[in-house]
Amino acid sequence: MFRRRLPEWFVLLLPAILVIAAVVLIPLLFSLYSSFTPYRLTRPSSLWRWVGTANYERILTDAKFWSAFGRTVLFLTIVLNLELVFGLGIALLVNKVTWGQRTLRTVLMFPMMFSPILVGFQFKFIFNDNVGLVNNVLQSTGISDAALPWLVDEKLAMFSIMFAEIWMSTSVFAILILAGLFAMPRDPLEAAKVDGCTAFQTFRHITLPFLMPFIFIAMTIRSLDVARAYDIVQIMTGGGPARRTELLWTLMARTGYVDARMGLANAMGYVSILLSIVFTVYFFRKLSAARAELGMGG
């Protein structure tokens, strides 16, 4: 018998290896390969022309790409920070509630239950210049006499999109931080009170350090999420008008599917993955540090 038997561990892992190869590895390699070709969706034969790093060179000098990149970083920073502040506030309030807390916790999760597409539509109408709720309220209360171009003006449009994103996902922070508050030991809080802390000092010196790991977990999850923000933006503004609200993913989708330049879009994808990696690694480091600080081990 010359047929050698495969090692047992390999046989056992084989199903997992096959699945991972099929759903992750092959698409990954394919897209990586295609980013070195001028692949156009409409002309499959272009997949076989190797152009080396031409796509990447093009991106690096492309002002449109970099402004979308910069806007995404800004979007990410502002959204994450505001979600943290609101999420923390909500969690602290809910933690104080003694009656109906379960119901409140469930209600908190409602925004997460909507499809981002629907949230996008909802806010698209709320912020609509002519028939939108916001302008209606502003005008009928006399705060503003002209209709504000909520989805047209660059700053206002970014604000509207952020508002929608924050409305939808603040509860991720709120729920994770609430879990932290529930897990918090009561004794150190009492010790702090006896040691002379006011309520705020107790929060600042005892509660907050304890919550840090929970905050960084939320940050890590949300940074991955926000870095690929697409649906809400696509529905509300489509990245426009005139690319004023273009983020990385709307740009990539436009390049890949509208302009059909898939090779270029994939190259953009690989560059922007760096962004996600940087944010994730950053928050992960922070998480480990915060855990070590609490003696939970790295």
């Binding site: 030991p185 004794d187 150190p188 702090a192 304890f210 609490l294």
Partner: peptide, 11 residues
């Protein structure tokens, strides 16, 4: 006050 579970500040 000295607590039964010590109540030290873990961080």
């Amino acid at each position: 006050m000295v607590f039964q579970n010590y109540a030290l500040y873990p961080h």
